[in-house]
């Protein structure tokens, strides 16, 4: 039987439409003069036809009449519980977070230290700054109901130096509905009066500061 070196190499590629020009043109031209290659190409085409025929016969024999019903039944089946899904999710991510126990412990410790530090800074400043000024025992009452004026002489206008008008310290008696003034400082020229009063009706504390000519009485 005659053989050709192209029969097993390029002819199957030509049949699969895998060859590009100019090799494709050369192969077609070669096949016109080579009986062996032409026969091999014909066999491949016949093989393709038979294969397609068999597949189509098999597909035709399948009963699709209940296909959509079966899909609907599967869709109506209850989904797995959240616990099962959580478990599946956990298992799928397990390789990602499979750190050793000491690594988890260190991460937990660091996170708790940072959180505790933030917590103390924001919510418990008395622990964060233990050097707070000592309470002034003579000024331990909360903002009074009556409007007493606390008068202080402010420094010269050009100095802009703040002066403490009043400093109640930290040790005040905390009454539920009143604002507690820990300290007030002001600056400016001339005599400045600070008036503090609690308005029970609106549950508001008023802080009014003024010079003799700024607030009409």
């Amino acid at each position: 039987m005659a053989t050709c070196p192209h029969t097993d190499g390029v002819i199957p590629l030509l049949h699969d439409n895998e060859l590009q020009n100019p090799l494709r043109r050369e192969t077609i031209a070669h096949m016109a003069t080579c009986v062996t290659c032409a026969r091999a190409f014909s066999l491949l085409e016949r093989e393709q036809e038979l294969f397609t025929q068999v597949v189509e016969e098999r597909v035709d024999s399948i009963d699709f009449s209940n296909f959509w019903q079966a899909v609907e039944i599967r869709l109506s089946e209850s989904a797995p519980s959240w616990a099962v899904r959580l478990r599946l999710w956990y298992e799928s991510w397990r390789p990602t977070w499979a750190f050793p126990v000491p690594a988890w412990a260190v991460a937990t410790l660091l996170l708790s230290l940072v959180s505790t530090h933030s917590y103390i800074d924001y919510y418990l400043p008395q622990f964060a700054s233990p050097t707070s000024p000592p309470p002034n025992s003579s000024l331990t009452s909360p903002a009074p109901e009556a409007p007493p004026a606390i008068i202080a002489q402010a420094p010269d206008e050009k100095s802009y130096e703040s002066i403490p008008i009043v400093d109640f310290g930290d040790d005040q008696t905390q009454e539920d509905n009143q604002a507690l003034i820990k300290s007030i400082q002001t600056s400016g020229s001339g005599e400045i009066a600070v008036q503090i009063q609690h308005d029970a009706a609106s549950n508001s504390t008023l802080i009014i500061w003024h010079g003799p000519s700024e607030y009409p009485q």
Binding site: L180, T186, N203, I207
Partner: peptide
Amino acid sequence: TSLLNASLSFP
């Protein structure tokens, strides 16, 4: 310099 600097607490 601030015109007013108050430190206070309220409910």
